[in-house]
Write a protein that binds this DNA or RNA. Structure first.
Length: 446
RNA sequence: GUGCUCGUAGCUCAAUUGGUUAGAGCGUCUCGCUGUGGCCGAGAAGGUUGCCGGUUCAAGCCCGGUCGAGCACCCCA
């Protein structure tokens, strides 16, 4: 082999993609667990779709002219010549799976949820990464607005369960294929008339995506937007009724929502209901959750029209919000008992004893690789163990073991064969609270 | 894709503005004599200053490029 240029420094992860290190894992576990509980209660079943899909699924489903498809998708060609994409979002794949497996033949509605990584090629920023994680909830085969409201409620509940406060739910309706084109024309003609007073960005938007003009932060555009016709005043009867019902259900649920007539979403498949949940604290905060109804998507990706509604939440963003609240990382649960050993004979007995504890479902920590008792006690202290069991040569020969109370330093010796039972008894007395000392590995990585 | 800022031990940061061998705290490891943790003391490991090149007698510091991070635009979860 040729001498290759040597890499002097190690590798680093690709732009905008991060390792999820042990301290961060606690958050993922916590969020996953919360989702799972809520999903079970509301009758949602978990689905996992591949990370790769045919690229066309997204260009058809999300819309060709959306930013996601136009410039943010990781697309590549396989050896077999297929164009595949790293999934940039979760709804289109779930719809694909729904149709592919004939789930329209299952009792309706079909409720599915997912949790996993997604990919978008864009400049990383706070709460925005190239590989990020979302969980989502989707309901198929239900056209009533009651499900729209329940979807909002589900995401709201999850965030609440994660102890996030000061949440704002913003809702809007963007109509359907009946009324939206009509409204679009109306809006465009309104804007065209005032084109000169708009910023250069918005001039472009008027042509390409007039609804997006509402997002502009320029003051002059804001003023024009304030006078602009609003879509909720131009909904067709069906959409109007649907939206009214939706709001009634939200009222009934006591959800603190606010109507945002300028809320439009960047994906083409939405119809009627759209919503976002964000944290209070200025417009700079990105939405934690976004979603809405997508009654046309099944038709676009398949044959039948199947009404559907759902939403997705950004896990990194939620973690960010959780951490801003609590500052510290969630702690790993650590065993309250540490098993120390001394000498070869004791070490042999210890690894066996350790297994006895496992069979009795008693969590125990150890440091078998270390021989010094001092070091083992240091470790026991560091993980916050409340009891250290010490098994040395002498104890093995006597068939006993020492129980050391780490707080008081008091020690007693008991029969080795009784230790498992004894520990079981003592664990019940120890309060389920956290260990006395914090895991020193809890450092901030990002 | 465009613009601005940043990059020194595992972590948080120094280095008298271009001048000897790049330091400290925390963390890690070892020791303070036989089998006992927290406190204390002693010591060690750990960096070709993100990487590549240029200017200079001399570069962590200046210049160019590149990779990464942060922020804004854009967009979104």
């Amino acid at each position: 082999m040729d001498p290759k240029p040597k890499r002097k420094k190690g590798y680093q992860s690709p732009t905008g993609m991060h390792d999820i290190l042990p301290p961060e894992q606690r958050y993922f576990q916590k969020i996953y667990g919360t989702c799972e509980n809520i999903a079970n209660f509301y009758g949602f079943q978990k689905i996992e779709t591949p990370i790769l899909e045919e690229a066309e699924l997204f260009s058809k489903g999300i819309g060709l002219s959306t930013d996601i498809v136009e410039k943010q998708m990781y697309v590549f060609r396989t050896k077999g010549g297929d164009w595949l994409a790293l999934r940039p979002e979760g709804t289109a794949p779930v719809v694909r799976a729904f149709l592919e497996h004939g789930m329209q033949n299952l009792p309706q509605p079909v409720k599915l949820w997912y949790f996993g990584p997604f990919f978008r090629y864009e400049h990383p920023q706070a709460g925005r990464f190239r590989q990020f994680h979302q969980f989502g909830f989707e309901v198929f085969g239900e056209q009533s607005a009651v499900i729209d409201a329940q979807i909002v409620q589900i995401f709201y509940n999850i965030l609440k369960d994660l102890r996030l406060k000061k949440l704002i739910v913003e809702v809007n309706s963007i109509g359907d294929s009946q009324c939206r084109p009509y409204y679009k024309k109306l809006l465009v003609s309104y804007l065209k008339y005032r084109l000169d007073s708009l910023c250069s960005n918005c001039k472009r938007r008027v042509r390409e995506n007039p609804l997006r003009t509402f997002d502009c932060k320029e003051e002059k555009c804001q003023r024009i937007k304030a006078q602009a016709p609003q879509i909720i005043d131009h909904l067709c009867e069906e959409c109007h009724n649907h939206f009214r019902e939706f709001l009634e259900f939200l009222d009934e649920l006591d959800l603190p929502y606010s109507l945002n007539p300028y809320l439009v979403r960047g994906l083409d498949y939405y119809t009627k209901t759209v919503f976002e949940i964000l944290e209070e604290g200025g417009p700079s905060k990105p939405a934690l959750v976004g979603g809405g109804r997508f009654d046309n998507l099944c038709k676009v990706l398949g044959r039948e029209v199947i009404p559907a509604c759902g939403g997705a939440a950004g896990i990194e963003r939620i973690i960010e919000a959780m951490r801003a609240k609590d500052k510290k990382y969630l702690k790993y649960p650590l065993p309250k008992i540490f098993l120390a050993q001394l000498g070869n004979l004791a070490k042999r007995k210890s690894i066996k004893l350790f297994e006895d504890f496992r069979q009795n479902k008693i969590p125990v920590a150890e440091s078998f690789g270390r021989d010094s008792l001092k070091t083992q006690l240091t470790t026991a202290d560091r993980i916050g163990a409340q009891i250290t069991l010490i098994l040395g040569q002498k104890e093995v020969l006597e068939g006993t073991i020492i129980i050391r109370d780490m707080k008081t330093g008091r020690q007693e010796t008991i029969k080795l064969e009784k230790v498992v039972k004894e520990m079981k008894k003592r664990l019940k007395k120890i309060k389920p609270g956290t260990n006395s000392r914090i895991n020193p590995n809890d450092t901030n990585i990002y």
